[in-house]
Nucleic acid binder design. Structure first.
Lengths: 188, 188
DNA sequence: CACCTGATGTCATTCACTGTCATCACGTAA
DNA sequence: TTACGTGATGACAGTGAATGACATCAGGTG
């Protein structure tokens, strides 16, 4: 048995999501989160850079997986098709996590500060994706625009997956959204 | 002659941009901004909701102009073409303001907090744009996706306009970016 | 057994932001 | 002219996020 209870990071993340859900983000103090996790405020800030970041622990892995999937697609494929493969990989991350994703998203949508943080995570994904496309030989501005389009498809597809009444695979929403974007831009 | 020096808001905005440029955003306190503008910290917060917002004073008018331009396009036009008209209207806002836009953008790019604020302003534009498209009879998810695409084109076009060596009309960058996005998605 | 290490606690401090009340030139109406 | 209301500002106290410095202490290591 260790000196401290295990998984301090996870306990902090759980406590934060609970409290943000119960009272709202602004009505929750970091001291309260730490207390519920059996820790002190100072320790919270050793695990998470700020009060928002505690909700975005997994975003690094998500970005890595996305980028890696795109990089691994044979170069013969068109850039947007490589991005589509990346979107399918992202979808796998959320299998059996729709309830969790819903709770988390409800908290984020309720507070502008958290939406800002979410947006910069998506912007980071877009930048990493553009970088990967450039490595595949895609020139600017096509690389940045394709990356932005891919993230836009993810955003809209994710929202629709979260909001859907019945459970459907996320990848279906992604493919549907990408097709819709294509037709919207080509005017058919 | 009024009791106070005129244009307190503008003085605060100028002082903030200067100080953020000189020392950086984080190294500048609100008290310093207020002092340079000949006011107190408390008065700063009467004019701007927070330390970031002082750099985004014009964003409301920008969004309004964008949305109005799109709404005024005859309904016979395709959604993406209406958005293109909106982008041209946006471009007019920046005529003769490239130097100012550059200084401001340099400050924003230097600090994550400010990028977050910029991203939520763009997200607000996207949401307003999607709403306008829905009023034009565009169904979801096409409305949201077209709006996201329009804002992506604005982002990329703006960056390229800012970064261009020679001065070219912003609207040219917008059209170029939109065309590139189209070809990237259709795979030609 | 002495020592080192890593995770945590304690304490002090800065600064963004808010609530409340005071101030005071200006306009307006009696 | 005078009394009064109004709006922009100042003064001050308070909360809470975030950071730095130092102390503590169980477990591993030589």
């Amino acid at each position: 048995m260790g000196r401290w209870e295990p998984n301090a990071r996870g306990r902090l993340a759980n406590a934060a999501l609970e409290l943000y859900s119960e009272r709202g983000f602004e009505q929750t103090t970091v001291a309260e989160i730490a207390k519920r996790a059996g820790l002190t405020e100072r320790t919270f800030f050793r695990h998470y850079a700020d009060k928002r970041e505690v909700l975005f622990a997994g975003s690094g892995e998500l970005e890595e997986a996305f980028v890696k999937a795109v990089a691994d697609v044979p170069k013969s494929a068109a850039p947007i098709d490589a991005v589509a493969v990346g979107l399918d990989t992202l979808a796998e991350f959320f299998v059996d996590r729709r309830d969790f994703a819903r709770r988390r998203q409800a908290v984020i949508m309720a507070t502008a500060e958290l939406q800002e943080r979410e947006l910069i995570k998506l912007a980071s994904m877009s930048a990493a994706l553009a970088d990967t496309l450039r490595r595949r030989g895609v020139a600017e501005p096509a690389a940045s625009l394709t990356a932005e389009a891919g993230v836009a498809v993810f955003k809209v597809g994710f929202e629709r997956w979260i909001g859907a009444a019945e459970e459907r695979e996320m990848s279906r929403f992604m493919r549907e959204s990408l097709d819709e974007l294509r037709t919207a831009l080509t005017g058919n």
